[in-house]
Amino acid sequence: AVTGSQTALLLRAFEKDRFPGIAAREELARETGLPESRIQIWFQNRR
């Protein structure tokens, strides 16, 4: 499950760019500790 702090970080990124590229998703994966594929799905679901 995604924690509150991970969600906050993802929401901030989403406000800046609703369609992040692979580099941005990989950076978010490093920052959150989540797999990049999970980040991609999160953005798809959020849109």
Rank of each mutant, 00 (worst) to 15 (best):
I41N: 09
R47W: 06
Q44L: 07
W42F: 03
R30A: 07
G21P: 08
R12M: 10
S5G: 10
S37N: 09
R25V: 15
N45P: 00
D17E: 08
E15S: 09
W42A: 00
E27D: 10
D17A: 05
L10M: 04
R25A: 04
S5Y: 15
G33A: 04
A29I: 04
T3D: 08
F19Y: 13
E27C: 08
Q44N: 08
L34E: 01
A13V: 07
G33P: 02
L9W: 06
S5W: 15
A29M: 07
E27H: 09
A8Y: 09
N45G: 06
T7N: 13
R46L: 10
I39Q: 00
N45Q: 13
N45F: 08
D17K: 03
R18Q: 13
E15M: 12
L28C: 02
S5N: 12
R47V: 08
I39L: 03
L28F: 03
A1H: 11
G4V: 14
E31R: 12
V2G: 04
W42K: 00
Q6W: 11
L11R: 07
A8R: 11
A24I: 09
G33F: 02
L9H: 07
N45K: 11
R46E: 09
R47S: 05
L28G: 01
D17I: 04
E31G: 04
L34K: 02
T7H: 15
R38N: 07
L28N: 01
F14P: 02
A13G: 03
R25E: 02
S37V: 10
P35C: 07
A13E: 03
L34W: 10
P20R: 02
Q40R: 14
G4D: 14
E31C: 13
P20T: 03
T32D: 01
S37Q: 10
A24S: 07
Q44Y: 09
I39P: 01
L10W: 01
L10H: 00
Q40W: 10
E36P: 09
R30G: 04
Q40L: 14
T3W: 06
E27L: 13
I22W: 10
F43Y: 04
E15D: 08
P35V: 05
Q40H: 12
D17W: 06
R38V: 15
G33Q: 04
R30Q: 07
R30I: 07
T32P: 00
G33K: 05
T32K: 00
A1W: 13
T3F: 06
G4F: 10
A8T: 09
D17Y: 05
R12S: 08
L28K: 02
R25C: 12
S5H: 13
A29G: 05
A1V: 11
R25Y: 12
Q6Y: 07
E27N: 09
R18S: 08
G21H: 05
P35M: 06
R18P: 15
P20F: 03
R25I: 15
G4N: 14
E31D: 07
L10Q: 00
R47Q: 06
R47P: 02
R30P: 00
L10F: 00
R18Y: 04
